[in-house]
Design a protein around this nucleic acid. Structure first.
Lengths: 181, 181, 181, 181
DNA sequence: AATGAATGAGAATTCATTCAT
DNA sequence: TATGAATGAATTCTCATTCAT
């Protein structure tokens, strides 16, 4: 791929992430194009359908988020890494709608499947480590955790939680996840 | 207003609730009209914009849900009424998209504001009673509770939780809300 | 259907027949709309897809052509009716592209099937009568006749035959169809 | 012209003939390019517009078909050569859409004019020879013959005649061309 | 000369909203 | 008041053609 093409591709992805983050999947491809400063045809050359564009954003985002999980797993205390990552995702979701596409079966018009699996695995590893460290009750499974995580992300996004509310809300949720004393 | 006009208004509202519950706010006004058995013009005479129609549905739905809260407060044990209502709302949200319109700043294209306040008050009363009964920890506020409730509703709807997952997920959340032993 | 709607429907059909007759199925729906003096949405209200519009034209045209066949069968000498109808169709096809849609497996983007069958039957009856009258050799079947007819129509349309050329060409073809002396 | 340029030109022509033969003139120039293994820009460098490309194919094809006529004229019995060539062209047309471009005023978006004249001359010579040999009636002119030939080609292509139908159809047509006994 | 990315004018179709009947 | 036809802007996607690399 030529240098200018790569540059445009990146600009389109960035514009798309912005636009879809702000307006959801309903935003028009035209707006993505104009925000990226290219013609509509260029967007469709790089991403033959709107769906493809959405999927590409997801992939990028997923890679970034999974990378964060790995980094956290490597350097942080297992007892806190899980909670930190959970909070990190929720905080991100509040700003970036597309995070949700990775978590919810619906939204962004993209089949999750693989999308979710990669993230679920990353979360699953942090969860297992936290459970081994006794920081999370042993009887919760990855399913519930993902469900709660998804819900929290959705809530944070659509409910426009401020920092304080997010902190207090997560405090309650985290308490539910900790072992009973 | 003439009798037939009033009758039409009711039929439109009922149809709209059905349609938007099934398909979300993206559903076409035309479909609402045909499901209600009236012409499209009649819908717009009663509700000048789609937004107005959505707002009207919300009002109806809110009234019904608040009524349920009151009924529960009257006849059930305060220690369980709060949790029962919480679970009830989540279960409804899973099937009826419009419930979210009452809880989330977004969804259904309607400014909540008043919407939310009425429901928040109903939940607040159940919460206070439960706290007095020692069933919910005294340090959580209505804000966190509404946030968690909204999140759970959103999760249930978009995540397509089955009955079992919903039960397990709520179990964790409820544990977070209960007093530490 | 309301009077104005019926009027518009007729105008759209007329415009579509004209436009597609001139430019073939590639002509834009927009042009049909503007030639009919209505907005694009009106065309799509009456004919939900372009295909539907094409199909509607075909149906009209077919009915008219089959009607002509019946009329000819009723009032003309069987020995000449077949040839007259053959020539009539070719002459029409030269001016009206859509005639081909009724004859050719391709063209006008509409599955022929029924289209073709109705016309084939009409021609078949004229053919049988002509054969009984000894005006057409008994060993040609309706398949060949339809093939030749279609070919002639196509030739007349795409080849832009003038009246004289059409007459001379058909003379040769008709000779091939007549019994050997 | 550089050697590689000439090579590319040939590859593009070959690819274009294939592509347009399969899909008609609606096929995209992009596909021609990719089938030829060159970039789209290269196609447009050699043939400034799509029309030019189509015209070039015609010219090539015409040369080949005229060559066949000459070969047949040289080695076959004049009484059969004309009919053989007629059948040969029709059979080719059934498979190669572009043959039509040579025969019809329309199709392939190219003005025939010169195109047709060369082929018409080739056919004309075979016809004259056949008439001298008494195999074709003396009163048909080259115009009618070309018209019938074109029509048959078009019919064969668009009507998707199978081998048997083609044989029977041509039998009728050829009978029309033969002298009355 | 070749490449292939960018352009932008359509094309079909949908839908909220208006307005004649 | 009700009807439902008409409107026309918006949307996704395609393709001939141009132009920077």
């Amino acid at each position: 791929m030529r240098a200018d093409a790569r540059r445009n591709r990146a600009r389109i992805l960035a514009a798309a992430e912005e636009v879809f983050a702000e307006k959801g999947e309903g935003a028009s491809t035209e707006e993505v194009a104009s925000r990226a400063g290219v013609a509509i045809g260029t967007v469709f050359r790089h991403f033959p359908t709107k769906r493809d564009l959405l999927a590409a954003i997801m992939k990028e985002l997923r890679a970034r988020l999974v990378g964060e999980a790995a980094a956290l797993a490597a350097r942080a205390d297992p007892a806190t890494a899980f909670f930190d990552y959970f909070a990190f995702l929720v905080e991100r979701a509040a700003r970036v709608r597309t995070v949700l596409g990775l978590l919810a079966a619906e939204g962004m018009g993209v089949e999750p499947g693989d999308q979710i699996r990669a993230l679920q695995q990353a979360v699953g590893e942090l969860l297992a480590a936290a459970q081994r460290a006794g920081a999370v009750r042993p009887d919760v499974g990855i399913d519930e955790v993902m469900a709660i995580l998804t819900a929290a992300c959705q809530g944070a996004l659509h409910g426009a939680w401020d920092d304080d509310l997010r902190r207090r809300t997560l405090a309650v949720v985290f308490d539910g996840l900790r072992p009973r004393p």
